[in-house]
Write a protein that binds this DNA or RNA. Structure first.
Length: 805
RNA sequence: GGGCGUUUAGCUCAGUUGGUUAGAGCACUUGCCUUACAAGCAAGGGGUCAUAGGUUCGAGUCCUAUAACGCCCACCA
């Protein structure tokens, strides 16, 4: 017997445990076709917020749907505990910087901290009903993952897509590491635009404008546009920079915008990306004046040792004092900052490991075209990113916690020595180099690489982790490619892109067939919820405790794929009502199934055919939506049917179920068979959204499998299309007659003394077939039906008011 | 500045390939304790579909432009 009230706290815990104990979501290869999902491993940086719940729930619903459709669903779950986010979390918890703690101790703390958070996260996702096989759980810094990341690196080295080179790279002097283009975030800041006078060596004065005067000591030349009438005569002359007292050539380049600033621009190594381009194009000298932690190098006269901002102020002051500062203007502009810490990025020049991006952009676009993107317009975002990428992918980070490069260098000549694949995973800091002497110079001493890999260098191998790349018993057969990648739109440029890059280099193929992109959760109108803003008003755990996981999933599953959603308590209320209704109607149905035995039956009552026909129609739409990854539209569609089922069908059939002596046993059986069959199917269809309550009801009423989540959707084939259509007209008439009662402020039980209808022949036949149901539902005493060519009309409703006493 | 998206009832959102009087939930109003459910049921009011043009017999839906908002990117002279 179902309980009078559904206690979600008790039941959700119960089924969560049951699924785990009975390995309901276990993955084992068998003869079924595999549907595989490449789930984003959430970054371990402190908190799972409502935005995660939203997008992971949507993906999870697809796993459940595919399982119901009969696929062998491969749905692993992992956590990204790698790299800078974890380090920052530990630094925050310890209140100390990594450098103060020491490399070894710090790594240990990283492991401990991420373990602790991951077990909380696992618990939260389990409570949300995530149907993953936790036995396939992975971390991005475990020995097996490190091995795969290192294998991937060595494979790319072998294939010539990865190189070590001294090259300008983006540098964060807060995190003290190089970073990749994808890790940038643009910010608008107010700054000062400084107009400074320089001179040519033959005595002409010209003005340049700069927001970064501290870079002047790094100036290597001055550019003007060759078309610039005002300045082109300067080309070829030599400029003398006052205060700093250096001389540089004046060159021409059409990239200089005549109308920006003064039209004259200084090129420093390096202030921005254009500087780097010019530096390469004109083979300019390199003057690198910043230290890694954001100071001016000591060799710069007067300014050495100052912080960047201090140097900026001092140089301006010196220019002013010397009379070379023309004017200052306040300017608002965008700067590039490091997304992890928010600090403005600089450029540094040191040896870094890069993966070649620039030579294969066309291939990446091609692979993007082979993948189906849901919603389709997300594909454009990918293309746009690939077309705009300007750098090769720098994968080395001067940090501590992450995947070590399996590399040593010859102490004398610097030749890299790579680990042997069979020795992986290795840590060059503790393991010995796999060579006795350098093959190039014969030296027998080696220095370990101290850098670690970028987070994305590791998370981009999730398909490889999933397929157990490089192992004996691997899943390469059925995971190349995987069926689906799911993530939010913000990481198309990182996770999706880099995974495609790696898949292309390793296998020459796409990593997945489909990509499903979810939208964002907005805190309020127009404000994205994000960790950095700390504007999430609701904690997932509180929500689960207050509303239940099923209700939260209702919210997560509503709305269109890829569309942003505002967190709304109202949607939660709506979900709560729906779940309550599912419970109550199930109780009602259970009550009437005490003597029911399921058997072959075709002699359905007209109204039963109507609702079965409506269900068949609904389920077609439900499947169509889900096949297009539109779980929100599917849910909406299903919900709409369900309320119709409760408010109209059940209201009609209940009389027949209660009073067999009046309606007959076979008509009653028809009703029993209908509710039995449809509730089963409704529970299945709802189960992808509400895994808990549907399981509770299923176990009580059906239980033909270990779990409802192991059943299969089989579409009905009654094809009651005609009844579905005409039955709607009967319901219309019922609704209008109810309206008449309601408008007279009367109970719906008020008898109708006389009802006169004019009906077309089809509808008349239908009502005659369902005459007992029809009369009982409306409490009709006398019914008169006249014929009409088409449509129908209600000619008279006379209510029996005497009964009200 | 570029790419993509959004704009429909007070609020949150649906609206298939263009086709009658534009839908739902919440909120609001009026009733109804009806042998599952008052966390319920029935009914009602409420919209110049962002704006301006255009295509069409017909536009919320297609085209063009504009505006506001959001996401991503480019802009450090």
């Amino acid at each position: 017997m179902l309980d009078k009230k559904y206690d979600f706290k008790e039941k959700e815990q119960k089924w969560m445990d049951y699924w785990k104990e009975n390995n309901v979501y276990e993955f084992k290869p068998d003869q079924r076709e595999v549907y595989s999902i490449d789930t984003p491993p959430p970054t371990v940086n402190g908190k799972i917020h409502i935005g995660h719940i939203f997008s992971y729930s949507q993906a999870e619903m697809m796993a459940r749907y595919k399982r119901l459709k009969g696929f062998n669903v491969f749905y692993p779950f992992g956590f990204d505990d790698n790299g800078l986010p974890s380090e920052r979390l530990v630094e925050k918890e310890q209140g100390k910087k990594a450098a103060e703690i020491g490399r070894e101790e710090f790594s240990k703390l990283c492991y401990e901290t991420t373990d602790k958070y991951e077990s909380d996260f696992q618990d939260l996702f389990s409570k949300m009903g995530v149907s993953t096989d936790w036995k396939m759980y992975y971390k991005t810094v475990s020995p097996s993952t490190i091995k795969i990341s290192q294998l991937s690196f060595l494979d790319l080295i072998e294939k010539g897509h990865c190189y070590h080179k001294e090259s300008p790279a983006l540098w964060c002097n807060e995190c003290l590491t190089s970073i990749a283009q994808a890790e940038l975030e643009t910010k608008t800041i107010k700054t000062m635009f400084n107009y400074l006078n320089y001179e040519t060596t033959d005595g002409e004065t010209f003005t340049i404008a700069t927001t970064r005067p501290e870079l002047i000591p790094a100036i290597v030349c001055v550019f003007v546009n060759p078309e610039d009438e005002k300045h082109k005569h300067l080309i070829g002359k030599t400029a003398h920079i006052p205060v700093i007292d250096i001389e540089v050539p004046i060159l021409a380049d059409e990239k200089v915008a005549i109308d920006k600033g003064t039209g004259v621009v200084m090129c420093c190594t390096f202030g921005d990306q254009t500087d780097i381009e010019w530096w390469k194009k004109y083979n300019l000298p390199l003057k690198y004046i910043f230290t890694d932690d954001g100071r001016i190098v000591d060799s710069v006269k007067n300014y050495g040792g100052l912080k960047i901002k201090e140097a900026r102020a001092k140089i301006i002051e010196d220019f002013k004092e010397a009379g070379y500062l023309v004017k200052q203007e306040e300017l608002e502009h965008e700067v590039q900052t490091h997304e992890r810490c928010g600090k403005e990025v600089e450029y540094s020049v040191m040896k870094q490991w890069f993966i070649d991006i620039m030579n294969h952009k066309e291939d990446f676009i091609k692979i993007g075209n082979e993948i189906k993107w849901y919603p389709d317009h997300m594909h454009a975002r990918y293309d746009e990113w690939v077309n705009n990428v300007a750098w090769d992918w720098c994968i080395s980070r001067q940090r501590y916690f992450g995947v070590p490069f399996p590399v040593w260098y010859c102490k004398d000549c610097g030749e890299p020595i790579f680990a042997r694949k069979e020795d992986l995973p290795v840590n060059p800091l503790s393991d010995k180099a796999p060579a006795d002497k350098c093959p190039k110079c014969g030296c027998n001493e080696f220095v370990p690489e101290t850098d670690v890999m970028d987070t994305w260098a590791t998370s981009s191998v999730t398909p490889l982790i999933n397929m157990r790349y490089g192992e004996e018993n691997n899943y390469e057969d059925f995971l190349k490619p995987m069926s689906l990648r799911t993530n939010a739109s913000e990481i198309i440029r990182t996770w999706d892109f880099y995974t495609i890059v790696k898949s292309f280099y390793h296998f020459g193929t796409r990593p997945w067939d489909n990509v499903m992109i979810s939208g964002f959760v907005m805190a309020d109108k127009g404000e994205k919820i994000s960790k950095s803003k700390g504007n999430s008003k609701v904690e997932p755990m509180d929500l689960i405790n207050n509303y239940s996981a099923d209700v939260i999933r209702y919210w997560a599953g509503s709305g269109r794929l890829g569309t942003d959603i505002i967190f709304s308590e109202e949607t939660l209320q709506r979900g709560r009502k729906l779940i309550n209704k599912i419970w109550n109607v199930s109780k009602f149905i259970e009550m009437h199934l005490a003597d029911f035995k399921d058997k072959e039956f075709t002699d359905f009552e007209y109204i039963d055919k109507w609702i079965i026909g409506k269900f068949e129609e609904m389920e077609k739409g439900y499947i169509k939506y889900l096949d297009n990854y539109e779980m929100g539209l599917a849910l909406n569609h299903l919900e709409k049917f369900f309320w119709n089922f409760c408010d109209n069908y059940i209201e009609i059939v209940k009389h027949r179920l209660y009073r067999p002596e009046e309606f007959g046993d076979t008509p009653r059986y028809s009703g029993q068979k209908t509710v039995y069959m449809l509730l089963y199917k409704l529970l299945q269809d709802f189960s992808i959204f509400f895994p808990f309550i549907t399981e509770e009801i299923y176990q009580e009423l059906y239980k033909d499998e270990k779990s409802i989540h192991l059943t299969r959707i089989k579409e009905l084939e009654y094809n009651f299309d005609k009844e579905a259509k005409i039955g709607d007209e009967i319901v219309d008439i019922i609704s209008q007659a109810r309206g008449e009662k309601s408008n007279n402020n009367l109970s719906l039980k008020t008898p109708i003394k006389n009802l006169e209808l004019s009906l077309n022949s089809e509808l008349k036949e239908a009502i005659n077939k369902s005459i007992k149901d029809f009369k009982a539902t409306l409490f009709i005493e006398n019914l008169k039906i006249s014929d009409v060519e088409k449509d129908y009309s209600i000619d008279k409703i006379e209510l029996n008011l005497e009964e009200q006493e």
